[in-house]
Design a protein around this nucleic acid. Structure first.
Length: 440
DNA sequence: ATAGGGTTAG
């Protein structure tokens, strides 16, 4: 009990004087009303320093895009046209990219077309931004036409980035051979395929069960003097796992290490996913997890989700609770709270009360019943009365790490408490949310 | 301006 309230107190206490930037972050994070978010954004962007901060644009637009508020996205991005920055190609390119990422391809295209009248020069940068917007908005089929028409029309010479983007689009459409043949086309245009060109192709081939096509690329890379990096190798590990060649994948990973390359979180996570197919790899999974810790390669929420499910499935709750501790330490959010509950239940069943306690205290699994069973705390009607929180309509469930099922009981009005169970849930959810926010 | 993870299970 005391540890939990300590955690809560820490989570709810306000931190020291925020700068303008932190201030903005605070306002935006806690503001549930998206109309107000938009107003605040527009107000802040009157400041020219603020307009240089690409990440604010990204955060705000991503949030509006996640909730499908496309009108509001249009409102803030179109509003930017009134600033002199719009004559700076870099600034406009960012807006085009944001439209693309929000899936608003027509807006991206329109802005590109408007650039001359906005007094903004168009070079290969904005051309590439337009191509990129096709890809991110999944208008893959448009890319090829743009590559054929626009360079002539606008006297822009495509560069490696342009071609890489087209290769990506063709791969996404499943036109692997056309994508591959663009390497030749590039060379004819006097451009050298680079690491990114090859990584796009490696990924596409191995991921789409074209293992032998993938294998052929390595020799080509050598010819082009392109040195593979960990992203290149990860594609192959993925390919091996996809073909259930687990041991070969392990051997290949060893080989990567012996080349002096550092494995990254992707490498491990791909391996773990391969191990999951069979309980016999549990020891191997632990060994690689230790390796991860030893080499200071921090696991992320996906790594934890995969390993936790694997541990639970094989009744290894000791490993499970160890994973939970690492998970809380890293302040990762799981999109499946049920997994934590499984660990607690498993540990309790095996009578490792102490471990269960730790998982609970650190992770606050929102199950009041197991909470009171394990800790012996009797849940009162009005716990934590000293803590105020805003329950109304905070809808960003994705940040809290709680499933939709757990969300539906949010029915408080004002600061009134309801039953102890849902109160506890809401309280814990708020705590999770705050912990998540603090870790950003 | 371009590159990379998942899907459980009742």
């Amino acid at each position: 009990m005391s540890s939990i309230s300590l955690l809560l107190r820490r989570a709810f206490s306000t931190s020291a004087a925020p700068s303008a930037v932190a201030n903005y972050n605070n306002i935006m994070r806690h503001e549930a009303d998206l109309k107000k978010v938009v107003e605040t954004f527009k107000k802040y962007t009157q400041d020219s320093n603020f307009r240089k901060r690409a990440s604010f644009y990204e955060h705000t637009v991503r949030r509006l895009s996640n909730t499908k508020n496309f009108t509001l996205i249009e409102e803030i991005l179109e509003d930017q046209k009134k600033y002199k920055d719009i004559t700076d190609e870099g600034f406009t390119v960012r807006l085009i990219t944001l439209y693309g990422k929000s899936g608003m391809f027509d807006h991206a295209h329109k802005l590109f077309d408007e650039m001359p009248e906005l007094n903004c020069e168009r070079t290969v940068l904005s051309f590439n931004a337009l191509l990129g917007a096709c890809v991110s908005s999944k208008n893959f089929d448009k890319v090829d036409g743009f590559l054929r028409e626009l360079p002539v029309k606008l006297s822009i010479k495509p560069n490696v980035v342009s071609y890489n983007t087209v290769i990506k689009a063709l791969c996404e459409m499943g036109s692997f051979d056309s994508a591959f043949s663009l390497l030749d086309k590039m060379e004819k245009e006097g451009l050298k395929p680079d690491l990114i060109s090859f990584n796009i192709l490696l990924n596409a081939f191995y991921k789409n069960s074209r293992f032998s096509d993938g294998e052929r690329l390595w020799a080509m890379m050598e010819i082009h003097n392109v040195v593979p990096d960990i992203i290149s190798y990860n594609s192959k590990v993925y390919g091996l796992i996809l073909e259930s060649r687990i041991q070969e994948a392990v051997d290949f990973v060893q080989e990567i290490t012996s080349k002096g390359l550092k494995l990254d979180v992707y490498t491990y996570t791909i391996l773990f996913r391969g191990f999951c197919s069979d309980g016999k790899y549990l020891g191997e999974a632990k060994r690689w997890f230790d390796e991860m810790m030893k080499t200071k390669c921090p696991p992320n929420h996906l790594t934890f989700a995969i390993l936790l499910r694997y541990a639970c499935k094989n009744n290894d709750f000791h490993f499970g609770s160890r994973l939970c501790r690492a998970l809380f330490y890293r302040r990762c959010r799981l999109n499946e709270v049920g997994l934590l509950q499984k660990v607690v239940d498993g540990v309790v069943k095996q009578k490792n009360i102490r471990e269960a306690e730790e998982v609970l205290v650190q992770g606050s699994v929102p199950n009041v019943k197991s909470l009171s069973v394990i800790t012996g705390i009797k849940v009162q009607d009005r716990p934590f009365e000293d803590i105020q929180f805003k329950p109304k309509g905070s809808k960003n469930s994705s940040r809290t790490g709680f499933s939709q099922k757990n969300q539906r009981q949010t029915c408080l009005s004002g600061n009134q408490f309801v039953s102890s169970a849902s109160c506890m849930q809401i309280l814990l959810r708020s705590m999770f949310k705050l912990l998540a926010d603090l870790s950003v």
